[in-house]
Lab assay of single mutants.
Amino acid sequence: KRPMNAFMVWSKIERRKIMEQSPDMHNAEISKRLGKRWKMLKDSEKIPFIREAERLRLKHMADYPDYK
């Protein structure tokens, strides 16, 4: 399994928030909203998620050195 990228790290957190607020919303609609919101974020707002994704990538490389 591949490590999460910055969007996936961010969307995992945000998806929970949306599901708590709107439990009946369909997954496809949540995904569309998340995509739009991610694109609207400033680069500076994405930095913590980019850093976390990089940390996960490095950990994945250490844990699975033969992964292609």
Results as ranks from 00 to 15, higher is better:
62 A>V: 10
68 K>C: 15
22 S>R: 05
57 R>N: 15
5 N>L: 03
18 I>F: 03
12 K>G: 09
14 E>W: 02
41 L>R: 02
5 N>M: 02
35 G>C: 14
53 A>V: 02
31 S>G: 08
40 M>T: 12
22 S>T: 11
4 M>W: 08
19 M>A: 08
20 E>Y: 01
62 A>C: 11
9 V>Q: 00
38 W>K: 06
32 K>S: 08
15 R>L: 05
46 K>L: 00
66 D>W: 01
40 M>L: 13
62 A>P: 13
14 E>M: 07
11 S>D: 00
40 M>R: 06
45 E>T: 00
13 I>L: 08
61 M>H: 11
67 Y>T: 12
66 D>H: 10
33 R>Q: 15
4 M>E: 12
25 M>H: 03
38 W>H: 01
30 I>G: 03
52 E>W: 04
40 M>W: 05
29 E>M: 01
31 S>T: 13
27 N>H: 14
7 F>M: 04
17 K>C: 05
11 S>H: 00
2 R>N: 14
4 M>D: 13
27 N>G: 11
57 R>K: 14
24 D>W: 07
55 R>Y: 06
22 S>G: 04
43 D>T: 09
13 I>D: 09
26 H>R: 11
13 I>C: 06
6 A>C: 03
46 K>Q: 00
51 R>M: 14
59 K>D: 12
26 H>S: 15
25 M>R: 04
11 S>A: 14
8 M>V: 10
27 N>E: 15
58 L>K: 09
34 L>A: 00
35 G>Q: 15
20 E>C: 03
23 P>Y: 03
46 K>H: 02
52 E>V: 06
17 K>E: 00
22 S>C: 11
56 L>C: 04
23 P>H: 01
35 G>K: 15
39 K>F: 05
33 R>T: 15
2 R>W: 00
39 K>T: 07
62 A>E: 10
48 P>H: 07
64 Y>C: 11
8 M>G: 11
48 P>G: 06
14 E>F: 03
26 H>N: 15
44 S>F: 10
44 S>D: 14
10 W>I: 00
13 I>K: 02
49 F>D: 03
41 L>E: 00
37 R>N: 12
54 E>M: 01
20 E>H: 07
66 D>G: 12
56 L>V: 05
43 D>Y: 09
67 Y>N: 15
52 E>L: 04
15 R>G: 06
59 K>F: 10
34 L>R: 02
39 K>L: 08
50 I>S: 05
29 E>R: 00
9 V>S: 01
9 V>F: 03
45 E>C: 04
62 A>K: 11
40 M>Y: 06
65 P>G: 01
51 R>C: 07
33 R>F: 12
25 M>G: 02
32 K>Q: 11
52 E>I: 08
55 R>A: 09
13 I>Y: 11
30 I>W: 03
20 E>W: 04
8 M>A: 14
52 E>Y: 04
38 W>V: 02
39 K>A: 12
62 A>N: 14
4 M>Y: 08
43 D>V: 06
8 M>F: 10
60 H>M: 10
2 R>P: 12
11 S>T: 04
59 K>N: 13
59 K>G: 14
60 H>R: 09
68 K>R: 05
50 I>T: 06
57 R>W: 10
2 R>L: 13
11 S>Y: 08
66 D>N: 09
40 M>D: 14
5 N>P: 04
18 I>C: 02
20 E>R: 03
10 W>T: 04
29 E>I: 01
35 G>R: 14
56 L>R: 04
47 I>H: 05
4 M>G: 08
25 M>Y: 01
15 R>K: 10
11 S>R: 02
14 E>T: 00
59 K>M: 13
61 M>V: 13
25 M>S: 05
41 L>Q: 02
27 N>C: 11
32 K>P: 03
23 P>Q: 02
30 I>Y: 04
8 M>D: 15
8 M>K: 06
55 R>I: 08
7 F>P: 00
39 K>Q: 13
1 K>V: 11
2 R>D: 14
42 K>M: 10
41 L>D: 01
52 E>N: 01
62 A>L: 10
40 M>V: 03
52 E>A: 05
56 L>D: 08
31 S>M: 07
33 R>K: 11
45 E>F: 07
32 K>N: 09
40 M>S: 13
26 H>G: 15
24 D>L: 05
9 V>Y: 04
22 S>A: 11
21 Q>F: 03
66 D>M: 00
41 L>W: 01
48 P>N: 04
50 I>M: 13
42 K>L: 07
39 K>R: 10
61 M>G: 13
55 R>G: 07
40 M>I: 04
51 R>H: 07
46 K>R: 06
58 L>P: 05
39 K>E: 11
14 E>C: 04
12 K>N: 13
31 S>N: 15
29 E>Q: 05
16 R>M: 03
53 A>T: 03
13 I>F: 08
24 D>N: 10
29 E>D: 11
1 K>F: 14
58 L>T: 12
17 K>I: 06
60 H>Q: 15
51 R>N: 10
67 Y>W: 14
19 M>H: 09
46 K>E: 02
61 M>R: 13
25 M>C: 07
42 K>R: 08
49 F>G: 02
41 L>G: 03
51 R>V: 11
49 F>E: 01
56 L>T: 08
33 R>L: 15
57 R>G: 10
36 K>A: 13
50 I>A: 07
31 S>P: 01
58 L>Y: 09
14 E>Y: 03
38 W>I: 02
29 E>G: 01
12 K>Y: 05
36 K>W: 04
62 A>Q: 14
42 K>E: 06
39 K>C: 05
31 S>D: 14
5 N>F: 02
31 S>H: 08
33 R>V: 15
38 W>C: 03
44 S>M: 07
26 H>M: 09
7 F>G: 02
48 P>D: 03
25 M>P: 00
45 E>D: 12
28 A>R: 08
13 I>G: 09
54 E>H: 03
38 W>A: 04
35 G>M: 14
24 D>C: 06
14 E>V: 00
56 L>W: 01
46 K>I: 04
7 F>Q: 05
40 M>Q: 15
48 P>I: 06
25 M>I: 08
54 E>V: 03
33 R>C: 14
19 M>F: 07
46 K>Y: 00
13 I>Q: 11
63 D>N: 14
68 K>Y: 15
21 Q>G: 08
52 E>F: 04
34 L>N: 01
24 D>M: 03
3 P>A: 04
5 N>E: 09
34 L>D: 03
25 M>F: 04
16 R>C: 07
60 H>K: 15
49 F>M: 07
23 P>I: 01
23 P>G: 06
10 W>F: 08
65 P>V: 12
7 F>S: 00
38 W>S: 04
45 E>V: 06
66 D>F: 08
53 A>C: 02
45 E>H: 05
17 K>Y: 04
33 R>P: 02
3 P>W: 05
44 S>G: 09
21 Q>I: 10
21 Q>E: 14
39 K>M: 09
43 D>N: 09
37 R>K: 12
20 E>L: 08
44 S>I: 12
26 H>K: 15
6 A>W: 00
